[in-house]
């Protein structure tokens, strides 16, 4: 028996919008820890890891570990039927091949049940090793989204370089090239507007902008984004999901042939 009640249902709506472009089908795993997902895109270039901790739910009942295979486009169709202020409850019985999404309006005057068929998905779970990152950049998520969007109109790849001068995003294409430098800036009115650069050593990595742009679909979830870089490792682009968890996108770098 599984029953997860999320008062801030809009978070789940935003989570689906954030990952459905990257991943088609995925297993949602429920355990005492929380509600999680790990999945790669079809080319195995990017990986998304979602965690919504059990403490973040108003009610969290998960009698035994459960893995539920879902088509994310179909989940998104279901969740789009929930109002932004609705409370969303996920329910599944042991051994059932369906999951039920229940939507309650804030004043309880409308209650809807949407039942969705589950599917069998063969997915391999990857171990993500703990890493020491050479540089960690925290910046406004809207600024990062703007940079990725702007650069993708010039080129296909972005070089992200962190030095003590700041973080530089560069691209080049047929029509020319572009460089955007963001310096550390902590003298802002609100903490979420700050750009904070923690650098152990300079790092420079090249990534496909198409994936970066896809990650920025998570922008509505959080005012800030954290980008962790180490040479020879996938970049981690992390968006917090309120105070209950995160979405982490891992993207493999483009490397010298």
């Amino acid at each position: 028996m599984l029953e997860l009640r999320l008062v801030q249902g809009s978070l789940l709506k935003k989570v689906l919008e954030a990952i459905k472009e990257l991943v088609t089908d995925a297993n949602f795993d429920c355990s005492a820890t929380g509600f999680s997902l790990q999945a790669m895109d079809s080319s195995h270039v990017a990986l998304v890891a979602l965690l919504l901790r059990s403490e973040g739910f108003e009610h969290y009942r998960c009698d035994r570990n459960l893995s539920m295979g879902m088509n994310l486009n179909n989940v998104s169709k279901m969740l789009r039927c929930a109002g932004n202020d609705d409370i969303i409850t996920l329910k599944a019985d042991d051994g059932s091949d369906t999951v039920t999404f229940m939507f309650e309006s804030p004043n309880q005057d409308k209650i809807a049940d949407f039942e969705m068929k589950l599917m069998d998905i063969d997915s391999e779970h990857l171990g993500i090793p703990e890493a020491e990152y050479h540089a960690i950049v925290k910046m406004p998520s809207a600024e990062f989204a703007r940079i990725c969007k702007d650069l993708s109109s010039i080129g296909d790849t972005v070089v992200i370089s962190v030095t003590k001068e700041g973080v530089k995003f560069s691209t080049r294409g047929d029509i020319g090239n572009a460089n955007i430098v963001c310096r550390q800036n902590t003298t802002v009115d609100k903490p979420e507007e700050a750009t904070i650069i923690e650098m152990q050593e300079p790092v420079s990595l090249t990534f496909a902008l198409r994936y970066m742009n896809s990650f920025t679909k998570a922008t509505p979830l959080s005012n800030t984004v954290t980008i962790s870089l180490s040479s020879e490792l996938p970049v981690v682009v992390e968006y917090k999901v309120a105070d209950m968890g995160y979405i982490r996108f891992y993207l493999a770098p483009k490397i010298e042939d």
Binding site: L47, L126, K254, E256
Partner: peptide, 14 residues
Amino acid sequence: VRKQSQITSFFTPG
């Protein structure tokens, strides 16, 4: 020329 690497070459099943 740079080539796109895959996540599976950094993270292994487990």
